[in-house]
Computed example of a mutant assay.
Amino acid sequence: MPRVEPGAVPEALVLLANLGRPRRPAGAAGPFTEPVLPDPAAASAQLGAVVELPVAEVDLADLRRLRRAASRAAEAILAGEALDLAEINALAAGATARVELVAADGGLRQRLVWADATPAAALARRLVEELSGLEPGRLRRCARPECDLLFYDTTRSRTRRWHAEDPCGWRERQRVHRGRRSGGTES
């Protein structure tokens, strides 16, 4: 897994925090909530963007624990509260590294080579890396009242309001426009 640089998007944190939250993709008749890590195949699909190791049945309990811990951490960040990182750190304990000397560009340098015992350990290690470089003020909840998804604002001006332009951005602008047309006031 690549090293997460300070200021980078905390992709694993946002993904885990949003798992199980109701969502309404473009074209969907209504919101739906997908089951959270229900089986190895679904878990592999849900976590595919952030976990390289295949998910087995034995991994599900730890991955579910990690998802709950990541969600609690995200909510604490949003509320400006202290984080309880014990669960994340306990699951990250299964990630170990060894130092290796590498000859590159005419010089010598060291690098860490990670050996993650489980997908949960790999993902917990990634969460540790992401949280250590996180800018808390950039983690946000979608401003559309009907949406509860979280996102990380990467705009220079820090003015992003929706987790995604499609559907929330255009739906919110459509709602405001309809309110103006009907003579209603915008809140």
Rank of each mutant, 00 (worst) to 15 (best):
N89T: 12
A92M: 05
G106C: 07
G94F: 04
G106D: 01
A104K: 10
E75Y: 11
L108K: 04
A79S: 10
A103L: 14
E100Q: 13
L78W: 07
A74G: 02
S71P: 15
S71C: 15
R65M: 13
D84Y: 12
S71I: 06
R67K: 09
L78D: 08
A104V: 14
V99E: 05
L108E: 08
A92C: 14
R98E: 03
A86D: 04
G94T: 09
A86K: 11
A82K: 07
A82D: 11
A97I: 09
L66C: 08
A95R: 00
N89D: 09
A97Y: 03
E100P: 08
L83M: 11
R64T: 01
L101G: 01
N89L: 13
R68L: 14
A82I: 08
A70M: 04
G107K: 06
A93G: 09
R64A: 00
T96W: 03
A82M: 14
G106K: 11
D105C: 14
A76C: 04
L91S: 04
L101E: 08
V102G: 02
D105N: 04
A86Y: 06
G80N: 01
R64G: 05
E100F: 15
E87C: 08
A74R: 10
A86L: 14
A82P: 15
G107E: 06
L108R: 00
I77Y: 13
R72S: 13
E100Y: 05
L108I: 09
A97M: 10
R64W: 13
R68I: 15
G106Y: 07
R67E: 01
A104W: 06
G107N: 05
R72F: 15
A73D: 05
E75S: 10
A93R: 08
G106L: 13
L78M: 12
L85Q: 11
E81Y: 15
S71F: 12
G107Q: 07
T96K: 03
L78H: 07
R98W: 02
E81L: 15
N89Y: 14
L78T: 06
A76Y: 14
G94E: 01
G106M: 04
A90F: 07
A90P: 15
R67T: 01
A92K: 04
L83T: 04
A82H: 13
L83H: 08
A70E: 02
E100C: 10
L101D: 06
A86S: 11
R72D: 09
A103D: 12
I88L: 10
G94S: 03
G106E: 02
L78R: 12
R67F: 06
G80D: 03
A70P: 00
A70D: 00
A95W: 11
A95K: 00
L108G: 08
I77P: 13
